[in-house]
Design a protein around this nucleic acid. Sequence first.
RNA 1: CGUCGGUUAGCUCAACUGGCAGAGCACCAGAAUAUUAAUCUGGCUGUUACAGGUUCGAUUCCUGUACCGACCCCCA
Length: 463
Amino acid sequence: MAYTPVVKLLRDAQPGEEVSVAGWVRTRRDSKNGFSFVELNDGSCMSSLQVVIDGQVPGYEEHIREATTGASLIASGTVQESPGKGQRIELHAASFEVPGTADAETYPLQKKRHSFEFLREIAHLRPRTNTFGAIMRVRNAASRAIHEFFQQRGFLYINTPIITTSDCEGAGEMFTVTTLDLEQLAKKPTEVDFTQDFFGRRASLTVSGQLEAEVFATSLGSCYTFGPTFRAENSNTTRHLAEFWMVEPEMPFCNLDDNMRLAEEFIRTVTKDVLENCREDLEFFNLRIDKTVLEVLENIVSHDFIRVPYTEAIELLEASGKTWEFPVEWGKDLQSEHERWLTEEHFKQPIILFDYPRTIKPFYMRCNDDGRTVRAMDVLVPRIGEIIGGSQREERLDILTERLHECQLDPEEYWWYLDLRRYGTVPHSGFGLGFERFVQLLTGMVNIRDCIPFARTPRNADF
RNA sequence: CGUCGGUUAGCUCAACUGGCAGAGCACCAGAAUAUUAAUCUGGCUGUUACAGGUUCGAUUCCUGUACCGACCCCCA
């Protein structure tokens, strides 16, 4: 049975057309004159379709009362011009059925505002709300735009492994993957013998596909990953998840300037795409979630990101006259209060910081000739902070090996990574975008846990 | 990991310095010359997170536990 999506009906349908629709009841109003108005939402867009069901329609008496908020509904009939305000058309049903009822006494979603905290407890039902429908549609549009952006530029989509044995990638705590019997092990006072484990050595969930992506960038050309990433940090914040999706392009014959240019073009292009394709949803966010979203997004699309060397950022922070909770000092990482001031108060737009001290950045970033900085870059946006982190990679074998030692990592463990420098090495660069943080930026949602279908955070992996 | 805050009706929240636990919404029933965020009237709803303690008396004060949230750390 072919049902017409509501989004298509509201856009294209003409009075007189015969159509069938299927979705879920948002609300029903009964007229004492013997007919009912049903707001039907099928998730294809923010708007619902008004279905007018007359008392003469077969089954009206027996079944109309089943069409409560949350019930599923299939209806067929004729499209008519709507006399109602704010809608072009409505559907006059000739027949209808309620495949699944929703007991009004127990159905958790009511025709009222719910807190996001409450909705997180019913993550299996929250996509039926306006806000979460809109978030997921924006997420989808951004996802598609990301693939399009790279595909149009000839980037190869690479699926890097989710289980990895390269530990200490320098991106934080990792989840161990094991088939060992933990309950048995807990009874013994001995050390864990990972040679007995499934992979014969300790394995973890990936914290980044970058190292593997470099393999393909130095063989097949520019490529990108877009996959799940895991961090076992005990982070309870509005912008951290234990499981999130990351986009990681990697480009050969590409220096940091090229990298920054691509990152900026990437954010701008995808944002523009979403602005064009999700107008109704974004207007909803602008009205109900954050009154500045549209303004912020338009600003991103129409202004160049400001590029500031780390050293200059330190000077700006020192000259700001503000008293910081954490002191500003060259060689120390910027605290979120510093990043926030730069992007929200000082520049009031996205900025790209680059050339960070080598002591606070991972081993693979390319060393500058000054001996104290590396070719790293972070894209910071208002409200979210760091949304992209990237760098030009160290392509010189000797210096990279030196850096591994400096970071107290064993070059033996990175033999294949070093081979890329040993054989036909090239300057190359890449970055990582936190996809949910991007969705946060696009929607104005405050908490990252509401920007992914099912959030995984410390002590929470329900659903 | 650290700091702070919270947990009261299905949901969102009240209850001043301890004194019989309330409102809005939702739901149900009526009403209305009636659709587009909550038109009107009436009705229903509670082991105040859990376990102890202080007190004549604890939603309120103290201790512990659980869970939730914010910030910080980590980064994306």
